[in-house]
């Protein structure tokens, strides 16, 4: 993944709760075997509606998505995170982000930012009033800044994930450092555990 140290840009307010991954990227998009090109499918059902936020020119060029609570519930499809990234979003802000979706984001370099409900609400209103509102998300400081609102809010991000974001590190390579521990673990596994090879 690419390193993400600081994202500075404008945001799109998606004022809905429980936005599930079937909405983020509908199932018909899951048939692709490539990893790119999913931006075109992002929220494709909702984008049929000309009034939908992503269709409003005033929000074009945004790199941050500010969404209602429980964003990313539902299926494990990483395609949802790929679609957001491919469309141009580098950060998702919500008061609650579903586990698997959150994990998937951190694997590819989309930063999940959880802020208190009232803070997200305030941000949402401010962006609606001023689509050009500049937001800064700093991974090093684990803080969201909005100068115009005099807002400075820390967000949770564990040290390891922060380190991976700052350095753009591939998870697999990091785990391969523990090859000896993996081999030792395997040697000690009980023999009654199943294997999948046909018997």
């Amino acid at each position: 993944m690419l390193a993400v140290q600081r994202v500075q840009g404008t945001a799109v307010p998606l004022d809905r709760s429980d936005v599930d991954t079937d909405q983020i990227i509908p199932a018909e998009w899951l048939k692709r075997i490539e990893r790119t090109g999913f931006g075109a499918g992002l929220f494709s059902a909702w984008r049929q509606d000309p009034a939908f936020v992503l269709n409003q020119p005033r929000y074009s060029g945004a790199s941050i998505l500010v969404a209602g609570p429980n964003f990313g519930t539902g299926s494990s499809r990483e395609h949802a995170a790929w679609a957001l990234q491919d469309y141009g979003f580098e950060v998702v802000i919500s008061s609650r982000i579903a586990d698997i979706f959150r994990n998937n984001c951190t694997k590819i370099g989309v930063l999940p930012v959880v802020l208190a409900h009232d803070v997200v609400d305030r941000l949402m209103r401010a962006i609606e009033d001023d689509p050009a509102l500049e937001i800064v998300v700093d991974v090093q400081e684990r803080t969201v800044w909005v100068g115009a609102l005099d807002l400075s809010e820390p967000f949770p991000l564990d040290d390891f994930t922060q380190y991976r974001f700052l350095n753009g590190l591939d998870d697999i390579g990091l785990s391969e450092r523990h090859a000896a521990a993996i081999a030792a673990y395997e040697a000690a596994r009980p023999s009654y555990l199943p294997t999948t090879t046909p018997v």
Binding site: S75, S76, R77, E78, H79, A81, I100, N103, N104, K107, I108, F160, D171, I172, L174, S175, E176, H178, I182, E186
Partner: peptide, 17 residues
């Protein structure tokens, strides 16, 4: 459930952070 990056991780290492 895991995402595709994690699928790749398990395929390669049989482990998952």
């Amino acid at each position: 459930g895991i995402g595709t990056s994690e699928v790749e991780h398990v395929l390669a290492t049989q482990t998952l952070p």
